[in-house]
Write a protein that binds this DNA or RNA. Sequence first.
DNA 1: TTGTTTTCTGAATCGACGC
DNA 2: TGCGTCGATTCAGAAAACA
Lengths: 359, 359
Amino acid sequence: MKHSDLPLNKVLLGDCIETMESLPEGSVDMIFADPPYNLQLKGDLHRPNNTKVDAVDDDWDQFESFQAYDEFSKRWLKAARRLLKPDGTMWVIGSYHNIFRVGSILQDLGFWMLNDVIWRKTNPMPNFRGRRFTNAHETMIWVAKDKDARYRFNYEAMKSLNDDLQMRSDWTLPICSGGERLKKDGVKAHPTQKPESLLYRVVLSSTQPGDVILDPFFGTGTTGAVAKKLGRNWIGLDQDKDYAEMAERRILRVKPIEDLELLRTESKRSAPRIPFGSVVERGMLKPGDVLYDGRRRYSAKVRADGTLVTADFKGSIHQTGAFVQKAPSCNGWQFWHVEQKGQLVCIDAFRERLRAELN
Amino acid sequence: MKHSDLPLNKVLLGDCIETMESLPEGSVDMIFADPPYNLQLKGDLHRPNNTKVDAVDDDWDQFESFQAYDEFSKRWLKAARRLLKPDGTMWVIGSYHNIFRVGSILQDLGFWMLNDVIWRKTNPMPNFRGRRFTNAHETMIWVAKDKDARYRFNYEAMKSLNDDLQMRSDWTLPICSGGERLKKDGVKAHPTQKPESLLYRVVLSSTQPGDVILDPFFGTGTTGAVAKKLGRNWIGLDQDKDYAEMAERRILRVKPIEDLELLRTESKRSAPRIPFGSVVERGMLKPGDVLYDGRRRYSAKVRADGTLVTADFKGSIHQTGAFVQKAPSCNGWQFWHVEQKGQLVCIDAFRERLRAELN
DNA sequence: TTGTTTTCTGAATCGACGC
DNA sequence: TGCGTCGATTCAGAAAACA
């Protein structure tokens, strides 16, 4: 799949399900969807008979409208699943009115749940009647296409964004207001415009520059604006011409971050692999040098071929570390140290030095 | 319905669905349920230090399929619905593995959703493999029996509990540990014991003294312990004799609180931690912006993930500040400034602004 | 006795790659 | 596709151990 086969960085007007079905299979890296939940379905539904409405019928009404919502959800989620690349992921946001239905259907369709992420609003609408808890959050579900997908998660970038602590499943962010909120004739243009900060974190966590991000319920185009800012491609679907025009105008004004280096998310995972043997080969350690664990409980000797040897074991730095600790596994780079000027220095420092040479 | 028709303040041993079906219809004011989560774990998980994570692998959490789990859920939820008084409410807690299925079924059965409430854990288990966001919350769904029910919500009590601000739908509470955690021979007695603080808030918000509270998955009896403490009646159902005995012994030791004022939580919380990443995410600084120290001796560029970069270093605001000064450590918030209208402004000002939003 | 450091643990759907 | 090998990965709070 080449990007050139896709209508990139524009809004496609029309029914989102039909549009998705017309786009090439397995072509999209990530989907962000903010589906409607207040469908005005009642008029379209046919009760099996025309009997007078009573309490029982009320229940029936409710059931039938859930069923209609489920049908709609299944259709667009199936179309979305078809569009996703095998290792692509999808985010769906909703509230308690619809998110449980969406979540169940996602599981039924074979999507694999990675996280449910809570958007905690710093400034939610208060509850006026005092009959419930202030509804101060929305829920996002993040899924991979299936259980074994090798999806993208920019762990280190998320950790950096959170002061070097793992990013949690609850995100505290304000709602979209002030200058960021699109207005038309002085009133808000769209009822559910999402804040760019929310999309920033979504996009930064699960895509890389150049990826294709699709939003089937584009609205005022927050997904596109953030995608452009972060150097990703976007495709917006919407059936409302006014929204589509507003979104395109909005995104036109967005300036991408130019220096791609600033966008690159660090991933230790993709750092070049350094075999321990090269540390010996390069003379940073010599055969016969003695390694210790951090507290000098264990020791081992370096051999010329980059293995270690103890009184009763021979093997890689990892195997030997695991053996002396009687542990199932061990990261030898972190475990072993060498004495330099009376201090124990972790051998991982040698690996870092070799990596720096390669960069 | 008189209370005398009910087996109050004891644990009923056996299958919870059968037991519920044997109790009188419309007799219970509130139900709190912590059903099996249907975790689908396979293989062991080790921490980075090679210790094994003690996961939930109990028989009662094993279901063959989503369908089997749904059938089970429908059965117990129907039985629970029959037991509830017309104006009673029910709470169900779960995680992303099961809560979407439970939520859908609740809606299908005609329950009326009042809130979904997020329990944010202050001290969740971290994510060891770095492949997801740290799963730091669980979800509770609070429902009335139907749309027009005149359910109980102690609005003022909740507001008082929250420093005279409306109680929100996200609750920040620690997990159950330390002395509160029931142990048997030194190891945790139950894999999923809930903290009493969580149940305090549930019970205090939606019941009044003298009410009957039923828990169909009683386990070690946290619901009963809190109910007794708060002067409510409780009924616990469980099929495990050991758990039942442990719970009864535990509740026997509980002393009811006479002065409810004591339950007020002093929540003059310390200043919330603001990661530098949020300043970028929120657009207060943009990737590529240049930061200087107060005397413009050093400069660094902001990256998209909230790290800084200089000619020969990349890292957090603190690490980078320390590096350029060749100092062992540095408070980046105080050290770095940005030029605005020709003036250097300390980036700590941004942190203050974000803190103010969190009030 | 008191302050400091180390250890332990909690509802977890938790790898990638080559042969 | 299945299996073995290599290698990457943790935060907060309480309790225990130690100084």
